[in-house]
């Protein structure tokens, strides 16, 4: 396999949530969420109540993948920031540590300048947490094995009923 599984633990999850909660406030945003490049939602903050976050996560990753493909075609490594402007709401999308995507949804109560500034700061913090997480996974692959080794065929069969 080219990359190993992404693993999230309680401690790092709390730290990540704290960072995006603060980003939400400081950027005056409506919603902030963190997505894995493969389209899986990692964490969300804000008015996510009636939002389809699973679909948002998948489409965001598709969007980043497509623009990343475009970047390569014109000789860029990637576009690290994407901005989509709507009538009411806007989307600010950025990549952290080449692996994770930060999405900020904001309206006229904020501005692109403010969001950019706050995202930049949050990205550094998120990057540090993610690096720590990766080191932790490298050091202790056993945590994962223990859980998964116990999965039996019966467990898997039961999933479909």
């Amino acid at each position: 396999m080219p990359t190993s599984s992404l693993v999230m633990f309680e401690e790092e999850f709390k730290q990540i949530t704290a960072v995006i909660d603060r980003l939400l406030k400081e950027a005056n945003a409506k919603v902030v969420f963190l997505v894995d490049k493969d389209g899986q939602l990692i964490a969300a903050s804000g008015e996510t109540g009636d939002m389809d976050t699973t679909s948002l996560a998948s489409l965001t990753a598709g969007n980043i993948a497509a623009t990343g493909g475009l970047a390569k075609l014109i000789g860029e490594k990637e576009f690290s920031i994407l901005f989509h402007e709507g009538e009411k709401d806007n989307l600010h999308i950025s990549i952290v540590g080449q692996r994770v995507i930060v999405v900020v949804i904001f309206d006229q109560r904020s501005s692109l300048g403010l969001v950019r500034l706050r995202v930049k700061k949050a990205n550094d913090e998120l990057n540090a947490i993610l690096q720590k997480l990766l080191r932790r996974v490298e050091k202790k692959p056993s945590v994962q094995e223990n859980l998964l080794a116990e999965i039996t065929d019966t467990d898997i069969d039961k999933l479909f009923h």
């Binding site: 396999m1 990359t3 190993s4 599984s5 992404l6 693993v7 999230m8 633990f9 309680e10 790092e12 999850f13 709390k14 894995d36 493969d38 389209g39 899986q40 990692i42 945590v143 994962q144 859980l147």
Partner: peptide, 15 residues
């Protein structure tokens, strides 16, 4: 690439 979240106790896979 799977995503195993010990915090929310979820295993995510892509097919």
């Amino acid at each position: 690439m799977s995503f195993i979240n010990y915090s929310s106790r979820e295993i995510n896979c892509k097919i």
